[in-house]
Simulated scan of single mutants.
Amino acid sequence: MARTPDDVHEDIRKEVADRADALWDVALRLHADPEYAFAEHRAAALLTGELERAGLAVERGVAGMPTAFTARSGRGRPTVALLLEYDALPGLGHACGHNLIAAAGLGAALAVHAVLAGSTGSVLAVGTPAEEGGGGKAVEVDAGLFDDVDAALMFHPGVYDWRRAPLTAQVQYQVAFHGRAAHPTGNPAEGIDALAALIELFNVLAVLGRRLPEASHVQGIVTEGGTATNIVPEYAEGRFGLRAATDRALDELIGQLRECAEGVARATGTRAEVRRATVRYDHFRDSEVLSDRFAGHLSRAGIVLTPPVPGVYLGSSDIGNVSTRVPAIHPFVAIMGEDGSDHTVEFAEAAASERAREVLLASAEALACTAADVLLSPELREEAWARHRSSVAL
Score class of each variant (00 low, 15 high):
residue 112 V to H: 15
residue 172 Q to A: 00
residue 149 V to H: 13
residue 112 V to D: 15
residue 121 G to Q: 07
residue 133 G to M: 01
residue 139 V to Y: 01
residue 144 G to N: 06
residue 120 T to S: 12
residue 122 S to C: 03
residue 129 P to Q: 12
residue 130 A to K: 08
residue 131 E to N: 04
residue 131 E to Q: 07
residue 139 V to N: 02
residue 154 M to Q: 10
residue 116 L to F: 09
residue 135 G to D: 00
residue 144 G to L: 10
residue 148 D to Q: 13
residue 148 D to L: 14
residue 113 H to D: 13
residue 144 G to R: 05
residue 169 A to V: 00
residue 132 E to R: 01
residue 121 G to S: 09
residue 147 D to A: 13
residue 171 V to Y: 00
residue 158 G to W: 15
residue 140 E to F: 09
residue 172 Q to K: 00
residue 119 S to L: 12
residue 144 G to P: 09
residue 165 A to K: 01
residue 154 M to F: 03
residue 162 W to N: 12
residue 139 V to K: 13
residue 115 V to R: 06
residue 140 E to H: 04
residue 169 A to H: 00
residue 121 G to T: 09
residue 148 D to S: 14
residue 179 G to W: 04
residue 124 L to H: 06
residue 120 T to L: 11
residue 167 L to H: 03
residue 172 Q to H: 00
residue 139 V to R: 11
residue 177 F to K: 15
residue 146 F to A: 05
residue 113 H to A: 14
residue 140 E to G: 03
residue 163 R to D: 13
residue 134 G to K: 03
residue 142 D to W: 08
residue 148 D to V: 10
residue 142 D to R: 15
residue 136 G to Y: 05
residue 152 A to H: 04
residue 126 V to H: 02
residue 142 D to F: 07
residue 122 S to D: 02
residue 170 Q to N: 15
residue 112 V to G: 12
residue 161 D to F: 13
residue 164 R to T: 14
residue 122 S to N: 02
residue 153 L to N: 04
residue 143 A to H: 08
residue 143 A to I: 04
residue 112 V to N: 14
residue 160 Y to K: 12
residue 117 A to F: 03
residue 174 Q to H: 08
residue 153 L to S: 04
residue 167 L to W: 03
residue 170 Q to R: 11
residue 176 A to D: 15
residue 161 D to K: 08
residue 137 K to H: 01
residue 124 L to A: 09
